[in-house]
Nucleic acid binder design. Structure first.
Length: 258
DNA sequence: ATGGCTACGATCCGTAGA
C-alpha cells in the first residue's frame, strides 16, 4: 500500500501536476492540503477520470483538505471531534480497514501570536482525539502538513530557525506528544540522506539552494509501522513550472489485510 | 539576508502562507 501526502497550495492551480503525479506514482492514498476550494468547485470529475475516489472538506480561499483513494473509502470525520473550528483542516476516511487521517496543521504565524495559540490548541485537540481513537483503531495513518520540523536534522539551518515558528520548542514538544500516543514518523524508520526537506520558500531561490524544512509527515500507528518498507520525498514536482512550495511524501507499506 | 514568492479576492493592495 502506497500512501502519500502533498500540500498543493491551491488544487485549482495544481490540478495538472496532481493528475500527472497520480498517473506516474499510482499511490493507493493521496492526502491533499490547502486545496483552497469550496466543495462545489472540487474537480471530482477529473479525479474520477484519473481512476480515483475523492473525499474533500474545503472552504473558499484558505485551508481545505482532500483524500484521494484508489479504492472506495468510507467517510469517518471531516473535522476534529469535540473541537470548535471554522477552518477546514482535517478529514478522515477508512480504506482497507485503515483509518486515514489527512491534516493541515495551522501555520502559527509567529511564536506567541494568537495564531500560534490556536496552533497549539488545535494540536492538543487532535492529540486528545487520536489518543481516544487509538483505543479502538489499531491501524491509523496521520498524514499531512504538520507545519512543524520535529528535529534539527529537519531544518536547513537550525541556528537561524532556533525558537522560530515551525521549529519552536512548544511546537516540537506538541509533535512529540502526538507521536508518543503510539505513532512512528515513517521517514525516521529508515536511514535517510542528509538535508531532505519537504518545503522550500518561493523566495530567495530557496529550492535551488536547498534551504528547506521537513514539515510534511506520515505518522503510522505501530501495526502499520511494522509493515512500512520505505519513506521518501519526491522532489520532482517542485521542479515543475508554477510548483507548489511543498513536495509530496510517500510511505510504502507491505500489503495489509483488506 | 526574510526585502526579493505565490494564491486569492479584492482591485492596482491586503491577507496569508511558512
Amino acid at each position: 500500500m502506497k500512501l502519500a501526502t502533498w500540500n498543493v497550495n491551491s488544487l485549482k492551480v495544481r490540478l495538472p501536476h496532481v493528475l500527472d503525479w497520480l498517473k506516474a506514482q499510482q499511490p493507493d492514498v493521496l492526502c491533499l492540503q490547502e486545496t483552497k476550494l469550496e466543495d462545489h468547485n472540487f474537480p471530482r470529475a477529473e479525479i474520477e477520470a484519473a481512476g480515483y475516489h475523492a473525499a474533500f472538506a474545503g472552504q473558499k480561499t484558505y485551508n481545505g483538505v482532500a483524500i484521494l483513494t484508489a479504492r472506495p473509502a468510507t467517510p469517518f470525520v471531516s473535522a476534529i471531534p469535540n473541537f470548535d473550528d471554522t477552518q477546514q483542516r482535517l478529514l478522515a476516511v477508512v480504506m482497507d480497514r485503515v483509518l486515514v487521517v489527512c491534516a493541515y496543521f495551522p501555520n502559527g504565524e509567529s511564536v506567541g501570536s494568537d495564531k500560534y495559540q490556536y496552533k497549539l490548541r488545535w494540536i492538543g485537540a487532535l492529540t486528545d482525539w487520536l489518543g481516544d481513537e487509538l483505543t479502538r483503531q489499531p491501524r491509523i495513518v496521520l498524514a499531512g502538513d504538520f507545519n512543524i520540523a520535529p528535529d534539527e536534522r529537519d531544518v536547513h539551518d537550525p541556528q537561524l530557525w532556533q525558537g522560530q515558528i515551525l521549529f519552536s520548542e512548544p511546537e516540537r514538544d506538541a509533535f512529540a506528544r502526538l507521536v508518543a500516543l503510539g505513532f512512528k514518523d515513517s521517514f525516521r524508520l529508515f536511514q535517510q540522506p542528509e538535508k531532505v526537506f519537504t518545503w522550500w520558500d518561493y523566495r530567495m531561490m530557496a529550492f535551488r539552494r536547498n534551504m528547506g524544512l521537513r514539515i510534511d509527515h506520515i505518522l503510522l500507528s505501530s501495526p502499520l509501522a511494522d509493515l512500512c518498507m520505505s519513506c521518501t520525498v519526491d522532489k520532482a514536482p517542485r521542479k515543475l513550472e508554477r510548483p507548489s512550495d511543498h513536495a509530496p511524501v510517500i510511505a510504502e507499506l507491505k500489503p495489509t489485510v483488506r
